[in-house]
């Protein structure tokens, strides 16, 4: 039962970059189950973004093992790697929308690039936009939207391909508190539909408010892992 629940497992994972003496992630062990909502918190340089990159397999660990649905990520072949990435929805702090594409095209792009048929794209894109509350903005270009709306497009793009997990790296970093709160509620809605959500964030007040699992990191190490946790004192040092 435990094995079926587990989506991601990190076993004593370390990651060092060539130009850095201090490892970005040090001897970290962590398990994330299907359908969980996890906040990754900690000061800048704690290793949160590296952890997200490791799960996405943008980086590989220097030592240790990461499994996703029981498969060792370091051993994925090119085709398996593509399949792995297609099951992850990524959300970025800077949205990474394509400015020459409309809202609809940006979301549709996520399905186009993985070769989904046009019929499926026509069906899924409006549904994803409706889920993030952007119905009616299909023809707008990113520059015509507020920061919060742009991030909603980013989230729609992440969820349109029905991912197993959404990985968000500082998704509210460029937003005011009100917008950030709305986005967190949106992530919660997505999570309620069964999608696992991992969010790396500095938004301590939102973390405290939402009472979700909190994994706190510092200097690449896991220092706290609490169900229904709070941000703690880590924000003081940022």
């Amino acid at each position: 039962m435990r094995g079926e629940l587990t989506l991601i497992e990190l076993k004593r994972v370390s990651k060092s970059y060539n130009n850095c003496a201090q490892p970005a992630v040090a001897n970290l062990s962590l398990q994330v189950n299907r359908g969980e909502f996890v906040f990754l918190v900690g000061p800048s340089g704690a290793g949160k973004s590296t952890l997200i990159k490791l799960v996405f397999r943008e980086q590989t660990p220097s030592s240790g093992q990461i499994t996703f649905e029981g498969r060792d990520l370091s051993r994925l072949k090119q085709k398996e790697l593509l399949r792995h990435r297609r099951r992850i929805g990524m959300v970025f702090q800077d949205y990474r929308l394509l400015k020459q594409k409309t809202v609809y095209e940006n979301v549709a792009f996520a399905l186009e690039v993985i070769g989904r048929p046009a019929k499926e794209i026509r069906r899924k894109v409006p549904a994803a936009l409706a889920e993030v509350g952007l119905t009616g903005k299909e023809k707008a270009f990113p520059a015509e939207l507020s920061g919060g709306e742009q991030q909603r497009v980013g989230i729609a793009r992440a969820i349109v391909k029905d991912p197993l997990i959404v990985l968000a790296d500082e998704p509210t970093g460029n937003l005011d508190r009100n917008n950030a709160l709305q986005l967190m509620e949106l992530f919660e809605t997505i999570n309620r539909s069964g999608t696992t959500v991992i969010i790396a964030t500095h938004a301590w007040d939102l973390v405290d408010r939402m009472k979700k699992r909190v994994v706190a990191m510092e200097n690449g190490c896991l220092i706290r892992d609490e169900q229904r946790g709070s941000y703690g004192n880590e924000h003081v040092s940022t």
């Binding site: 990435r85 297609r86 990524m90 990474r96 394509l98 792009f109 690039v113 993985i114 391909k161």
Partner: peptide, 11 residues
């Protein structure tokens, strides 16, 4: 940018 996004989308 587009190429980068494509990689993240699993292209």
């Amino acid at each position: 940018d587009e190429v980068g996004v494509m990689k993240y989308l699993g292209a």
